[in-house]
Design a protein around this nucleic acid. Structure first.
Lengths: 159, 159
DNA sequence: GGTTTCTTGACGTTTCTTGACCATATCGCT
DNA sequence: AGCGATATGGTCAAGAAACGTCAAGAAACC
């Protein structure tokens, strides 16, 4: 009784691995039929799993010969990756968003297990400090968290 | 007899030991049923026993087909080595001393370049934060840095 | 006896699935 | 070229299925 969303996600990932230019094109209706679900389920999978934060771009076109095209974002220079990360993190980031981002980076092999652990501990420590010691508002805490995260990830992107 | 929490903790530890890549995935509801307790008890066990500081990463997802995944990152180490680690970092007070320890760990190949970088950046960031925002005395700042570094090193169970 | 840790349960939030209804691109016919 | 028909894909909301949070009281610890 595995999840439908996960099955579709894995299917698309497999397609991407096979394709050479790391782009796949597919029909929403066909894919939905293949999995025996409503077409809008495909949109849900794309919206939740193939986001820019996870390193994907999705384009589509309606009408006759319509299509959905999914591409991996690739970075030529480290600076591009840094810019992308900073854009995603923004000025404020919640604990949950941090989790998701780190999980994604780990899955993509950008972060090792131990590096992730260090990031988690550093973020937790700062959060404890800022909450317990200095009693800042949750919003301020999320701001400081974004700052720390950006700083840490930027340092890694450079080596 | 506060055995419930311990029983659940041991159960999860046993699962982790069986697994090859030390990761287990479980259903909160099932586990709670298995132990005849409320589901939130599982959260308590995870929060208190499977923290990043202790070398674990916990991820979860809500909603249909939700799950809780627990990964053990740091190696199992004999108690004497853990004691040894405690002995070394427990006595560290100044940032200088911790720096020396870091360099030594790095030279011995126990800490990677990237990991060292993360530690340095986290350290510097916290110091700037504490100095600029909260205006603590240099002595206090030094202590907080040492605390952070000790926490990070412990999480990796290095030594 | 006071403090920390544990246990429970009420209430909150997120994720997934489905379906009705909306928007738009292409084609074929005038 | 214009226009309707057809073929796609998009959005949104509702309901169900998990998991999370928080606070109060009990138990254990010192």
């Amino acid at each position: 009784m595995s999840s439908l969303t996960r099955a579709i996600e894995e299917y698309i990932h497999r397609l991407l691995e096979e394709e050479e230019p790391e782009v796949v094109s597919l029909r929403r209706k066909d894919l939905a039929e293949h999995f025996g679900c409503v077409p809008s389920q495909i949109n849900y999978v794309l919206r939740s799993r193939f986001t820019p934060e996870k390193g994907f771009l999705v384009e589509s076109q309606r009408g006759g010969h319509g299509f959905i095209r999914i591409a991996r974002i690739t970075f030529r220079r480290p600076q591009e990756r840094i810019d992308h990360l900073e854009e995603i993190i923004g000025n404020v980031i919640s604990v949950q968003e941090v989790r998701r981002l780190l999980t994604s980076l780990q899955e993509r092999g950008i972060l090792s297990d131990r590096e992730r652990l260090l990031l988690e501990v550093a973020l937790r420590f700062q959060d404890e400090l800022v909450e317990g010691y200095f009693d800042l508002s949750p919003y301020k805490r999320d701001m400081l968290q974004a700052d720390l995260l950006k700083r840490l990830l930027r340092s890694l992107a450079l080596c």
